[in-house]
Design a protein around this nucleic acid. Structure first.
Length: 888
RNA sequence: GGACGUGUAGCUCAGCGGGAGAGCACCUCGUUGACAUCGAGGGGGUCACAGGUUCAAUCCCUGUCACGUCCA
């Protein structure tokens, strides 16, 4: 006998271990099985599971469990990402906290060793957390982006792209993060709106004939100005173009140039030009061959190109000092408050500097072309489809991708430099040495590039590098392209786009056929959850409190397409209760001898109730299957919830009680067998979403009755495939009548405050012959559930009885003795009022000649029927009201 | 400034060209052995606003307002 409730705390670890031991997470060896593969979006190796991971991985697990049960060779390939900047940051912070040497003091090799130590220590955390969620990944295939195999793939890709001239070294302005002292890509820059100022500075003309006023939000950069620009059409400045101003503080003449860039309508119309420290100014400088003066070092402190008294100052100190100097010189014309966007490093949170450096770039604009085409032609589809627009938008405007990072944790760039700085890009140092020696005609010393690659460079290879590429492995042949990628829209650019580009370039095939973009879990204000905002919900705490199944069901149910999820504990609790409900329904069946019958055929059951539930089970199985096949996660859970709770528990179990506890042995046996069969189907259908509780129930009912065709675990049982022919419209109608008679009768009783203990008769007044038969046959049932003394067939509604209509049949409850006549009169009057309104509405339609002539025949007919029914119901209520008047 | 999305019951959301839905919350009643992590019943909404298309609009179109996200 089952306990009263499911205990996730003890059952979940036990079941997970059993699954893992069974080998069921690995794809079947059956060569005829259709492959279905998913690669996990690799979480940061040193990270821990947050609610977004919980959602993303729940959906992947739902899908993989579903397809596994459908008999496919289902592979969910797990792994982790080395997450360069994020991990290096964590370890550096740890070093600082424990009073160790800093990264630089430690040196590269020792520091990297420390990171590996940290990885060994905490790298298993997130994997174990995924297990607690129930994730059925094939752990035997687990990969890490810094694995030897994946690193080899990275080197191969880099070298090949270089040989194809799709990777090149270039000196240009990059986004420089002064906190980490590394370049970052455009995507890693976050524009934040902040309060700032416009400082209006006067630059005196060299010839003493006046001044030009320029405004800037970054006064310190004026030390590196090399021109002042005005628009060529700007009449105010026509005369001074070609002249020079004397740059204050620095005391250097710089030219006044004409360029399209300045907006004459903004401020004075004149703009200071600092090519080394502004992206727009850099372009202007290029057009006019202006000198590029860099005044910062890697930490964004002023270097020796600045006047002596500024050297070594932080950029913000320098800013204050420059403003003070202008004030002292009498050249500060105005300070204007402003709100403007300032680029910040997404990891460091500090203001990013445009900074002139040598970096490696990928010609993304070339790789993007096939990636755009593949989505245009439907080789890869986005679900929901709207996200294609986001993808296209970015891909069509893609910029060269800066892939070098001045970090230590990551894939070191496979480039070696000769004595004259010439780069030899090869997969191994030996190969580079060989090429270098050949080139120089003598043995030379090479020095490897100090930089590592952007983390996304290696994760862009994930769908094929994890399957063994560049080796031609059987996994690669079988599981690539992968089928579905499930991820968040926040990394469409970072990751999805890069996988598309690199996958197509190196394998000639799309990396996945379908991309499902899951919602973002947000807080109440619609903000992303983040640690710094302190608005996170810890999924593991939720698992502790409600069990993994409850959290999974909640996330699945709420994952409507293209939506934000606002998570609440109440909701999770509700789905925990749902699990308990199923648990107890199973317990009830167990207590009532429900057991699988040998050779049970759902098509052969006789009792209408059983035929009905077999049909409903079929409908549900079909709906859930269709939904899951289409990533309709919310829809699938909705069908499951309604069927299990509102049909199976609320009605089937209740209606089956007389059969299960009655004297008709044949009917009892059939009902026991049917219930057992339905439960088995329910467990299967619900398993992908709630794997633990369903598996526990599956195992604990394994010995009830005939053995299941499929032995072992529910996880690897066969998904139900039920034919339409199991649906019996006649049985549906019968059960619908019984349910309606009871529901409406209850409504009448309670609406009139008839005490629960009162047991009037149920009078059946007017029915079809078939309905009469149904009510006769199920009299005992109706007595029990409606709490009436008997079901009696009469010719007319007697005085003092309250009639009600279901499915066109008139029933009545003689409850005058129990009720408040005035309250009943009020109730009936209100009801008549609402019916009158409805009648007016419908007849309005039907009296409209256009409606009758133009609307489809069925719609018109439907309205006619509704009108007739509503009028009949109203007539009956008015009759009852009249009788009430007579009685009162 | 551009793109995308959202405005439906107190809250969270589903629905979608022809009778306004669910869960939670709320109110009333109820422990007949599956379940109080429960059961029964009930109240509650000019489906953001304004136009348009249509026999018919919460649903389609246009505009307005509000909010959100992303990209400049």
């Amino acid at each position: 006998m089952l306990d009263k409730t499911f205990d996730p705390k003890t059952a979940e670890p036990r079941l997970y271990e059993a699954w893992e031991k069974s080998g069921g997470f690995a794809p079947t060896d059956d060569p005829n099985a259709e492959p279905f593969s998913i690669v996990i979006p690799p979480p940061n190796v040193t990270g821990s599971l947050h609610i977004g991971h919980a959602l993303n991985n729940t959906l992947q697990d739902v899908l993989i469990r579903f397809e596994r049960m459908r008999g496919k060779a289902a592979l969910w390939l797990p792994g982790t990402d080395h997450a360069g900047i994020a991990t290096q940051m964590v370890v550096e912070r740890q070093l600082a906290q424990s009073g160790n040497l800093s990264r630089r003091d430690l040196g590269r090799d020792d520091f990297v060793a420390k990171v590996w130590e940290w990885k060994a220590q905490s790298g298993g955390t997130i994997v174990n957390q995924l297990k607690r969620l129930g994730a059925s990944c094939d752990w035997s295939r687990e990969r890490f982006t810094l694995d030897e195999g994946l690193s080899a793939a990275v080197r191969k890709v880099f070298v090949q792209l270089h040989k194809q001239k799709l990777i090149y070294r270039d000196k240009r302005l990059v986004n420089w993060d002064p906190h980490f002292q590394t370049a970052i890509s455009d995507l890693e820059v976050e524009a934040r709106e902040v309060d700032g100022h416009f400082w209006h500075f006067a630059y005196p003309l060299e010839d003493g004939s006046g001044e030009i006023v320029v405004a800037t939000t970054r006064p310190e950069t004026m030390l590196a100005d090399t021109a002042v620009a005005v628009h060529p059409s700007d009449e105010r400045y026509k005369a001074v173009v070609g002249k020079a101003v004397r740059l204050p503080i620095v005391n250097r003449p710089i030219p006044i140039i004409a360029d399209e860039y300045p907006d004459p309508g903004k401020g004075s119309g004149a703009v200071k030009i600092t090519p080394a420290h502004d992206f727009n100014d850099f372009m202007v400088g290029k057009r006019h061959n202006l000198p590029v003066i860099n005044i910062f070092d890697d930490f964004a402190r002023l270097n020796d190109n600045a006047p002596p008294e500024y050297r070594g100052l932080d950029r913000f100190e320098a800013r204050r000092k420059v403003v003070e100097a202008f004030e002292a010189l009498g050249l500060l014309r105005e300070i204007e408050k402003t709100r403007h966007t300032v680029p910040h490093g997404d990891r460091s949170g500090v203001v990013v500097e445009p900074y002139l450096t040598d970096q490696w770039y990928v010609a993304a604009e070339v790789l993007a072309k096939p990636a755009i085409k593949a989505v245009e032609e439907g080789d890869t589809v986005f679900v929901p489809k709207n996200w294609e627009k986001t993808y296209f938008e970015w891909m069509r405007n893609i910029q060269p991708w800066c892939v070098s990072r001045q970090l230590w944790w990551g894939h070191r760039i496979p480039a070696w430099y000769g004595p004259d700085g010439r780069a030899f890009v090869e997969e191994t140092e030996a190969e580079a040495q060989k090429k270098a020696d050949e080139h120089y005609g003598r043995p030379v010393a090479l020095k490897q590039d100090e930089d590592v690659l952007d983390t996304w460079f290696s994760s862009g290879l994930w769908p094929f590098s994890t399957l063994g590429w560049p080796e031609k492995t059987s996994d690669l042949a079988r599981f690539y392209p992968t089928h579905t990628l499930i991820t968040g829209f926040d990394i469409i650019f970072f990751w999805v786009a890069r996988m598309m580009m690199q996958g197509l370039h190196f394998t000639g095939q799309v990396p996945f056929k379908r991309v499902f973009i899951n919602a973002l879990v947000r807080d109440a204000e619609g903000k992303k959850m983040s640690k710094s905002k302190g608005n996170v919900m810890d999924p593991l705490e939720l698992v502790d409190d409600y069990g993994a199944d409850a959290l999974r069901f909640t996330l699945t149910a709420m994952s409507g397409q293209a939506r934000d999820i606002k998570l609440s504990r109440q909701r999770i609790e509700g789905y925990r209760n749902f699990g308990t409900k199923l648990w107890n329904a199973t317990r009830f069946c167990q207590m009532n001898g429900c057991a699988r019958a040998e050779g049970f055929d759902p098509a052969a059951v006789k009792a209408p109730l059983n035929r009905w539930i077999v049909g409903e089970t079929t409908r549900t199985a079909q709906a859930v299957t269709a939904a899951l096949a289409d990533c309709g996660f919310g829809e699938a859970s909705e069908h499951l919830y309604r069927f299990i709770w509102n049909q199976f528990c609320d009605w089937y179990v209740e209606l089956a009680k007389p059969l299960l506890q009655g004297d008709d042995a044949a009917a009892r046996a059939e009902t026991q067998a049917t219930a057992a069969w339905v439960l088995d189907v329910i467990l299967k259908l619900l398993h992908p979403v709630m794997p633990f509780i369903t598996e526990e129930l599956w195992l604990s009912t394994a010995d009830l009755g005939a053995r299941r065709g499929e032995g072992g675990y529910l996880m690897t049982a066969r998904w139900p495939d039920l034919p339409e022919s199991l649906i019996d419209a006649g049985a549906d109608a019968e059960v619908a009548l019984i349910i309606a008679a009871i529901t409406e009768g209850r409504s009448v009783r309670q609406g009139l405050n008839v005490p629960p203990s009162a047991q009037p008769a149920l009078l059946v007044v007017e029915t079809t012959a078939a309905q009469r038969g149904v009510l006769e046959a199920n009299a005992a049932l109706v007595q029990r559930l409606l709490r009436v003394s008997e079901v009696r067939f009469v010719d007319a509604v007697p005085a003092g009885a309250i009639p009600y209509v279901v499915e066109g049949a008139t029933l009545a409850l003689p409850v005058a003795d129990f009720i408040d006549i005035a309250a009943e009169r009020a109730r009936l009057t209100k009801e008549v009022g609402s019916l009158t309104g409805e009648i007016a509405k419908i007849s309005g339609k039907l009296n409209n000649a256009d409606f009758v002539s133009r609307a489809p025949e069925e719609v018109v007919e439907e309205n006619r029927e509704r009108l007739a029914e509503t009028q009949a119901a109203k007539a009956r209520l008015e009759e009852a009201l009249a009788r009430l008047g007579a009685a009162g």
